[in-house]
Design a protein around this nucleic acid. Structure first.
Length: 883
RNA sequence: GCGGACGUGGCGAAAUGGUAGACGCAAGGGACUUAAAAUCCCUCGGGGAGAAAUCCCUGUGCCGGUUCGAGUCCGGCCGUCCGCACCA
């Protein structure tokens, strides 16, 4: 009654069309059922989807389909993170307009995503480059500006002098621009910044509430925010030694306990005092200039020598007015942490020790490890940062570090004779404000106008969106918006005078910081969100994406949601209640004789197990099989999803992505594995066909009683159902797959046994109760694999005679009574070692179980006639006899 | 340097502190076939006893600890991977 082979190619397109025509994945905002919002990180429209997308979206789709079957109103949208550099690069290299390039890519990728059979609500599709989207982003920028969550600041930036643009840190490679190869300069520029640091403490504290986030991500964010507690201390300066009579220098320290070990002070090269001193000291000016040109590359920082320049300025120790410390400018002090100045305690800080050893300033240990004689405790090359007792520290001597810190803080923060206290306690964060200005065309325009008279003037709301001009050229370096002949020339909204548009655009991370809120109502034109709707849908119940976004995207989104709350666009703090970070897709690499990489599609692999060898298809040259690495264009070890879907079908790609490895770990894409998935899909098809045949003319109503064979079948089905249901909830997709295999194997065996024992295949009809149980079993089987292989499931569902779609069928109910055994078999241990097992009635009392266990030969032997010391019975689990 | 994760068969992996290795891949053996593919059946951590059913010993990177019982919890090593990093 069903064909021998399931033809994925034909069936998948057919079912996709049916889902599409019936609009079954479009979600209604007024649906009264409980909501569930599942979201995968939206893609950048690079032009083609890759296997990482397939893995990501398959996981989300499984969750969406299961939650839908469980009766929830599921929101599962898709969109495009559509602004960004690659579109401009394409424009420069291939003379296509970024907009045309982007929309072509979107069309191509949308087609690919549709071929995957994802249950997405495409009616909510968003592209961040669409003015209907960024209009609202501009509105929120203005609201943030009003709330002082956006400010204009002078900032040090990486400037590429050839491309004439600011580069992100990631775009600076070995001190050079990644595109131009030009030496990057540190420049001070006016930048728009989002005041994320206003939320530093809240962003840190609230991490504890995100109990459905990976611990790893929370920790990474915690470290990134980098809270540290310490003391701000004002050192008086010897005025006679300062350039323009400055009288104090403020430093930040987390180790005020080591104040008596101080040997020098150090300033960042761009510290105001350093700048002032340099004006009168050309040698110092030259030193500072040199520091600015030093590379920011990791390798250079690692090997960079600690260098300093003595300014001649003297600072006075806060506890001893006769104790003067030399003030250096040093290359390892950062202006943007603390106050950009430190006191150096070489004995207990490795950097300070390296510094004094170079300049011969010496060191005095002030913390002595326990068990060490202070008289013999000396520091030479290795600073001591461990615990201990204070020494060489006057009134601190003998105290612990904690006590000494407290004592110093207490003494210095006291009001001294009506003057400002010398010190105050301060909490510092590593987190910096988020600079969002980019000198680029293909981004969201920043909606402000610079007026010669009025200064910075926000674009009036009625004039939003500020749209990008389309007639731009990419034939020279710099920002095309800035080069545009007319776009930036406007009149001031306040005074009507001559004014200039802001030509910087926003960092694309802004676009992705609120798209999940926009998805809840992408149609509203008057505001970024509809408060009723967004508050109902948010937070996202399950967010799924790559670990590479652990910090930036996720932290920015957490900030943005708080800022939106403050400006009345949503009423919550945390946008993502559940977060899952999936592993990468990896593949073997193949190397040619000449050292070039070969693509999987270009080679042929022969042999098996340990004796596999590869040759190049075109020439037959031998190929070296290399390491298994992340799929990447450079290593050419990619597999195109289109090819897989074309030859095996989307279901196979989806199934294999879920089956082989736990979702958080890397999965290796192998041809063998894909073929295994394909074989199993065909096996399922046959199995459902056989099951359908057996269950023909099964009774409509549930039989009152079941034969042992039917009961066995039902038990296998409900056990699988219970297991898969539980493991899907935990996102253990690989374990779900295993349970489905197990169930299919069991079903196969049952059908096989029928053929031999009952002769059913020879014509002896199975009993009605068995036919009913078989129908139930195959229905459950199809529903269990439906989330992973939805097309095959629809085909099977139809073959089973259902009128509706399996995509709309309710998740089956587990009959827990079936999972309860009448007898149970308990392993019996002697002193924790398994010695046998006993089978007892399910409701057997502990006395009966103990008696049965003690009766075992192995236990008797171990006891050697003596009574056991103790017998531990864990109900339903195990018996342990302690001898 | 700081922080974290992980380490289980030939491979990917399972295992609320309770029978380690479910499930898959690979491999070996067999059935069917003129043959191949497909399909089906059996074996599959290591070692040993037995004609066989089966049984015994051993085993989750190494060393210790907690516990009646540890792959799982704790401490210390070794190895691999990841994040951050002149952050005072």
């Amino acid at each position: 009654m069903t064909p021998d082979r399931y033809n994925a190619r034909e069936a998948e397109a057919r079912w996709q069309k049916i889902w599409d025509e019936r609009g079954i994945f479009a979600t209604q905002n007024d649906d009264p059922r409980p909501k569930y919002y599942v979201l995968e990180m939206f893609p950048y429209p690079s032009g083609r989807i890759h296997m990482g997308h397939v893995r990501n979206y398959t996981m989300g789709d499984v969750v969406a389909r299961v939650k839908r079957a469980m009766g929830m109103n599921v929101l599962h949208p898709m969109g495009w993170d559509a602004f960004g550099m690659p579109a401009e690069n394409a424009a420069m290299e291939r003379k296509v307009h970024p907009k045309a390039w982007t929309y072509d890519n979107i069309a191509a990728m949308k087609k690919q995503l549709k071929s995957m059979g994802l249950s997405l609500d495409w009616s909510r599709e968003i592209a961040t480059c669409d003015p209907r989207y960024y209009k609202h982003q501009q509105k929120m920028f203005l609201d943030f500006l009003g709330a002082k969550l956006v400010e204009r600041e002078k900032r040090k930036v990486n400037w590429d002098p050839v491309d004439q643009t600011v580069l992100a840190n990631e775009q600076v490679i070995d001190g050079r621009g990644w595109r131009s190869g030009a030496l990057v300069e540190q420049r001070e520029m006016s930048q728009w910044v989002f005041k994320i640091t206003k939320f530093s403490q809240d962003l840190l504290t609230a991490l504890d509430t995100l109990d459905r986030w990976p611990e790893k991500v929370r920790l990474m964010q915690k470290n990134w925010i980098g809270r540290s507690e310490g003391l701000l201390v004002r050192f008086a300066l010897d005025k006679a030694t300062t350039p323009t009579g400055e009288n104090e220098l403020e430093i930040f320290t987390t180790r005020p306990d080591t104040l008596f070990g101080a040997k020098f002070m150090a300033l960042a090269p761009d510290h105001p005092l350093a700048t002032a001193a340099a004006k009168k000291n050309p040698a110092l000016a030259a030193f500072i200039e040199e520091c600015k040109h030093r590379g920011t590359a990791q390798a250079e920082i690692d090997t960079a020598e600690k260098l300093g320049f003595d300014t001649g300025i003297k600072a006075i120790h806060p506890f001893d007015k006769d104790w003067k410390l030399p003030v250096y400018v040093a290359n390892f002090i950062l202006m943007d942490y603390g106050t950009g100045a430190i006191f150096g305690c070489p004995a207990h800080d490795q950097r300070d020790l390296d510094f004094v050893n170079k300049y011969g300033l010496g060191n005095v240990p002030v913390v002595c490890p326990l068990g060490q004689d202070p008289k013999t405790f000396v520091i030479t090359d290795t600073a001591y940062d461990g615990d201990g007792r204070m020494i060489n520290s006057r009134f601190l001597d003998g105290m612990t570090i904690v006590e000494a810190k407290e004592e110093v803080a207490k003494r210095l923060e006291q009001d001294t004779a009506g003057n400002r206290p010398v010190a105050q306690r301060q909490v510092n964060y590593r987190l910096r404000d988020w600079g969002i200005s980019r000198q680029r065309y293909w981004g969201c325009p920043i909606p402000v106008i610079h007026c010669e008279k009025c200064g910075v003037v926000p674009v009036p709301e009625k004039d939003l969106p500020v749209t990008l001009p389309e007639d731009v050229t990419f034939d020279r370096p710099g920002n095309p918006l800035d080069h545009h002949p007319t776009w930036k020339n406007v009149s001031c909204p306040q005074c009507g005078g001559k004014a200039r548009r802001e030509t910087d655009t926003m960092d694309t991370f802004v676009d992705s910081s609120w798209y999940f809120e926009r998805f809840t109502d992408p149609w509203i034109t008057t505001a970024p969100t509809d408060m009723t709707v967004v508050n109902r849908w948010m937070p996202v119940d399950q967010y799924i994406g790559g670990i590479e976004h652990a910090i930036l995207h996720l932290l920015y989104s957490r900030f943005f949601t708080r800022a939106m709350k403050q400006t009345g666009h949503v009423d919550l703090d945390e946008p993502f209640a559940g977060l899952f970070t999936q592993g990468m897709v990896v593949h073997e690499t193949y190397k040619r004789q000449n050292g070039e990489w070969a693509a999987p599609a270009e080679i042929k692999i022969e042999g098996d197990g340990n004796s596999r060898h590869a040759t190049l298809l075109a020439t037959g040259e031998p190929i070296e099989i290399g390491a298994i690495e992340k799929m990447s264009k450079s290593k050419r070890n990619t597999v195109d999803p289109d090819d897989i879907i074309g030859s095996y079908g989307a279901d196979i790609a989806r199934w294999f992505m879920l089956s082989d490895s736990p979702p958080e770990r890397d999965v290796e894409w192998t041809e063998r594995g894909v073929q295994g998935a394909w074989r199993f899909s065909q096996r399922l098809w046959r199995l459902v066909g056989e099951g359908a045949e057996i269950s023909q003319s099964a009774p409509e109503t549930r039989p009152a009683a079941f034969s042992p064979e039917a009961a066995k079948l039902r038990k296998a089905a409900h056990k699988a159902l219970a297991n898969v249901t539980a493991d899907i909830e935990k996102l253990h997709f690989n374990v779900c797959v295993a349970h489905i295999y197990e169930f299919a194997n069991a079903l196969n065996t049952i059908i096989g046994d029928m053929g031999s024992e009952n002769g059913a295949k020879e014509g002896a009809a199975p009993t009605p109760d068995f036919r009913w149980a078989m129908r139930e079993a195959v229905n459950i089987l199809v529903q269990l694999f439906h989330p992973m292989m939805p097309h095959l499931a629809e085909e099977c569902w139809a073959a089973l005679g259902h009128q509706g779609l399996v995509a709309q069928a309710a998740w089956p109910q587990v009959e827990t009574a079936l999972l309860v055994e009448t007898t149970m078999t308990l392993p019996v241990q002697v002193n924790g070692k398994r010695r046998g097992e006993v089978t007892v009635a399910r409701d057997a009392g502990n006395q009966d179980i103990e008696a049965a266990a003690l009766a075992l030969d192995a236990v008797q032997t171990a006891l050697a006639g003596k009574p056991p010391k103790k017998v531990i019975i864990v109900p339903g689990r195990i018996v342990n006899v302690v001898v």
